[in-house]
Design a protein around this nucleic acid. Structure first.
Length: 523
RNA sequence: GGCCCCGUCGUCUAACGGUUAGGACAUCACCCUUUCAAGGUGGAGAUUACGGGUUCGAAUCCCGUCGGGGUCACCA
């Protein structure tokens, strides 16, 4: 492995004056972590050097694209804090920014290529193409279009047309080597002879990816094409097109992929991959962005924790790493916990509410799902208050905002249920526990308010009277008050519960103990 | 299969030919403590995929092998 040595010229491209970059998702699915990172790197690059970040929607796959998906992707980008200077909604001087609104542009350029003999109509059917492809593969050769429609006569063309075949426009590839100057990988050579004539215009009239990117990147004056490594081998095709159209090349930079723990391509079966799912699970955009930034990029110092603003400062393309990264959810979880703990409470609460309404929103589409999930959503909103109240006590131990919801739930009035362990703790030294709980109840009832200090004092006295302390004393009290054997410090818990709820819980626990005893005597 | 990219602790990564190969997550131990966490301290963990070169000296440069990934679509 060799780090790309930046010469004078390269340096200029790595740190340009006012770059124009773009993120160009196709609205055929949700925004995945890989796409999010590509968007982030582009965004950081633009922000760092005072450039522009363009959002372009590549919706030429008519079958799979949908406005809903587009909305989901843009919504996730905004959630991450990545905004764009130009785009379908934002407008801008190089629009339209949705490829289906640019069809006439592609056709015009396609005509130009066809008229100059650099492109030709191909009448081959998908089935024919497929079987020829397999023949190449069987011979151990590079599968590619064999160019058989290159020299079609008018008669032959008419014949195919009468058969009802709809032609696609193909680009006439030239041989020779094509060099890609890549900002993160250095110079990469490709053999043009191994690349077949690829499609420019599909038979439905929409442009192919390779054609549309070239046209758009040029017309939108994109200076740096920063994208995933899966596009590296497409680049020679695009370079050939730039040359055929007589256009200047942008800079290219291909960042390596994000892989699953088994080193395969990250996909659904590996767990969470979509940004939206992380939102639902209670991750903060602060954490996700920070973690993703560290996948394939490293600062020049030892820092790991960055705000977006700090990332802008620290980011540079020449510190982008070339080897693929494995997505490590454990580290993300740690980082998320860190942000929950250190961000100010108002912000965390805001994120919690965001999560609650996002979950509700995202399930609105499917009416059945919504119905099924309804009680959960109601609870979430009811819990917003509880979460606010309990955040200071709970944030120390959690990793996601969802933990906040599940953990705070049991502190709601009337939500006391006993875990088997807690029940065990209450029952195992029944007599002593009963004494503890009775005197605790009396003391709390007798004091005007339940402060942490007051509670501590009460516990001290009970301990002195009964000659116990530590775990033996606090364990039963914790079990009675919370129904769990683990949780925040009781000194925090008691004032938060309040006098009435605390008393009611002790009563409930005492009753439960009696019931348990009758149960065991009876059997 | 052809072509292309990549290969440093389990994971993310640092180390412009000269460091006891550094940090973070995870893991282990201890401290703190009414519990679980969090936090603190420390430990273990990498013959830099392997094999050859070049060099006084290689994780770093060159070649080969192996392994992983990408791509070869009328998907993007």
């Amino acid at each position: 492995m060799t780090r790309f040595k930046a010469g004078k010229v390269r340096e200029k491209m790595l740190e340009p004056a006012k770059p124009r970059v773009r993120f160009a998702p196709s609205p055929t699915g949700s925004l995945h972590v890989g796409g999010a990172r590509t968007a982030l790197f582009n965004w950081l690059f633009a922000r760092k050097y005072g450039g522009r970040f363009v959002l372009r929607i590549e919706d030429t796959d008519l079958d799979r694209s949908s406005p809903e998906k587009e909305r989901v992707i843009t919504d996730d980008l905004r959630w991450l804090g990545l905004d764009w200077n130009e785009g379908p909604d934002a407008g801008g001087p190089h629009g339209p920014y949705r490829q289906t609104d640019r069809l006439d542009l592609y056709r015009r350029l396609a005509d130009r290529l066809k008229d100059s003999g650099l492109a030709y109509w191909c009448y081959c059917t998908p089935e024919e193409l497929e079987s020829r492809r397999n023949e190449f593969l069987a011979r151990g050769e590079n599968p590619r279009y064999d160019g058989r429609c290159r020299g079609l006569t008018q008669d032959q063309a008419h014949h195919f047309q009468r058969e009802g075949r709809r032609p696609a426009l193909r680009f006439r590839m030239q041989g020779g080597t094509i060099q890609v100057h890549d900002l993160v990988r250095g110079d990469v050579d490709f053999d043009g002879d191994l690349i077949g004539d690829f499609v420019l215009l599909k038979s439905d009239g929409t442009p192919s990816y390779n054609f549309a990117v070239v046209v758009d990147d040029h017309m939108m004056e994109i200076s740096h094409v920063i994208r995933g490594e899966e596009h590296l081998t497409n680049t020679p095709r695009q370079i050939a097109l730039y040359q055929a159209l007589g256009l200047a090349l942008p800079e290219f930079g291909h960042i390596s992929m994000i892989l699953a723990p088994d080193r395969s391509k990250l996909s659904k079966r590996h767990g969470t991959t979509a940004v939206g799912e992380y939102r639902e699970r209670g991750f903060l955009p602060e954490a996700l962005v920070n973690y993703i930034a560290l996948l394939g990029w490293a600062p020049s110092d030892d820092r790991e924790l960055f705000t977006l603003e700090e990332l802008i400062q620290a980011f540079s393309l020449d510190r982008v790493v070339r080897n693929p990264a494995i997505f490590d959810e454990k580290k993300l979880l740690w980082m998320n916990g860190h942000y929950i703990r250190t961000l100010d409470e108002g912000r965390v609460l805001e994120r919690f509410r965001e999560m609650a309404s996002f979950i509700q929103e995202s399930h609105k589409q499917a009416e059945a799902t919504k119905k099924r999930m309804a009680p959960f959503f109601d609870d979430l909103h009811k819990q917003a208050e509880a979460v606010k109240k309990w955040l200071p006590a709970l944030r120390e131990k959690i990793h996601t905002l969802s933990d906040l919801a599940t953990l705070s739930e049991r502190y709601l009035p009337g939500h006391l249920t006993f875990s088997p362990e807690a029940l065990q703790t209450l029952v195992e030294n029944r007599d002593v526990t009963a004494k503890i709980l009775h005197s605790l109840s009396d003391s709390i009832a007798g004091s005007p308010e339940t402060s942490g200090e007051g509670f501590k004092q009460i516990m001290k006295e009970i301990g002195k009277t009964l000659q116990i302390g530590g775990k033996a004393l606090y364990g039963p009290v914790r079990s009675a008050l919370t129904g769990e054997i683990h949780g925040p410090e009781l000194v925090q818990v008691v004032p938060l519960l309040g006098k009435d709820e605390a008393l009611s819980r002790i009563r409930t626990a005492l009753q439960k103990m009696t019931k348990q005893e009758e149960l065991s005597n009876g059997s």
